[in-house]
């Protein structure tokens, strides 16, 4: 990757062009923000695929098409395979100087689409795969996915007397993807938009597959005010429940190591999906966070 001379993108130099607008996403939807920002980075020579899920549901309602670039809904499991096919076809038709990007939800990525994603990375296909993670199957009405955090109340993990929401922690997609020896992978958050955009730019420079996992709050599914999605996405990073990292040339890198975490409880209790949690639940969540951070720090920071 030709990283050194790259101009860092910021709010001032990012393109004014819009490639995703007029869609029907809920007010304050961070998933649609992630798509919009990424496409500003990638530009008009971009082909995109989005599986069944919120972003395709709100972007392709005939005859009102919300993408200004070539776009297509993929099957729910088939984001990565559709992208690979586009890449193969474009290559054979002599069009290689383009970006091919997918935007799939957490369910479309970590659950039903993981096989196709694994296949694409294995083939080293030059496509960018962006997982916008809103931590549940939102389009079908907020059901648990493999990326739903511990304790979350969803419509299939109700919070009752016997079970208090989701019993499992988030699947470690970032490291699953990295374990394929992918050229470039990163985590991001719409709470840190500059970081996200620059990672998209890096991904576009990769000569094989790249993957970005961006946390994208969903006011509707998380039970938060519509104007707070970006704030909450930032909080998630600051309290340590999400992290900003990269995997490049076989090395992991933590982009942000908070000296001190902000309050987990404060992060959780802003969201109605966590309202039912007890002190013990929060201790369990913090314990899991600390364990993960200890491991990431000891393995990924080269403090010699």
């Amino acid at each position: 990757m030709k990283s050194e001379n790259r101009i860092r993108l910021n709010a001032q130099n990012i393109s004014d062009n819009e490639y995703f607008f007029g869609h029907k996403a809920c007010a304050g939807c961070a998933g649609s923000l992630a798509v919009r920002l990424a496409l500003k980075v990638l530009g008009e020579r971009t082909f995109t695929a989005l599986p069944a899920g919120c972003m395709s549901a709100v972007g392709f309602i005939y005859p009102q098409m919300a993408f200004a670039i070539n776009a297509m809904i993929s099957t729910f499991p088939g984001t990565a395979s559709l992208l690979s096919g586009m890449k193969a076809g474009l290559k054979k038709l002599g069009k290689e100087d383009v970006n091919i990007v997918g935007f799939a939800g957490d369910g479309g990525t970590a659950d039903i689409g993981i096989q196709a994603l694994s296949g694409a990375i294995d083939r080293r296909d030059r496509v960018i795969y962006i997982c916008y993670d809103n931590e549940a199957y939102m389009n079908t009405g907020i059901q648990k996915s493999g990326l739903t955090p511990f304790g979350t109340k969803t419509t299939t993990t109700p919070a009752g007397k016997n079970i208090r929401g989701c019993l499992t922690h988030k699947k470690n997609m970032f490291e699953i993807v990295a374990a394929h020896d992918i050229e470039y992978a990163a985590t991001a958050s719409v709470g840190y938009p500059e970081d996200f955009m620059n990672k998209v730019q890096k991904a576009a420079e990769a000569s094989t597959t790249s993957y970005i996992h961006v946390l994208a709050p969903c006011p509707t599914g998380w039970g938060t005010p519509t104007e707070t999605a970006v704030e909450i996405a930032k909080d998630a990073v600051d309290c340590g429940l999400w992290f900003l990292a990269e995997y490049e040339e076989g090395e992991f890198k933590l982009n942000r190591v908070p000296k001190e975490f902000s309050s987990v409880k404060n992060y959780l209790f802003q969201q109605s999906r966590f309202k039912h949690l007890t002190e013990d639940d929060i201790i369990e969540i913090e314990r899991f966070r600390d364990k993960k951070w200890d491991r990431m720090k000891s393995k990924w920071l080269n403090e010699k």
Binding site: A80, S81, L82, S84, G85, K87, G89, A116
Partner: peptide, 28 residues
């Protein structure tokens, strides 16, 4: 044959990829 032979990991992906390639105008 001057074709790209894709080593897909399932039949679902085989046809999904075929659609991606056909969608950009390639014979598949």
């Amino acid at each position: 044959i001057d074709a790209d032979f894709m080593h897909v990991e399932s039949e679902h992906s085989a046809l999904s990829a075929a659609m991606g390639s056909s969608a950009v105008g390639a014979r598949t």
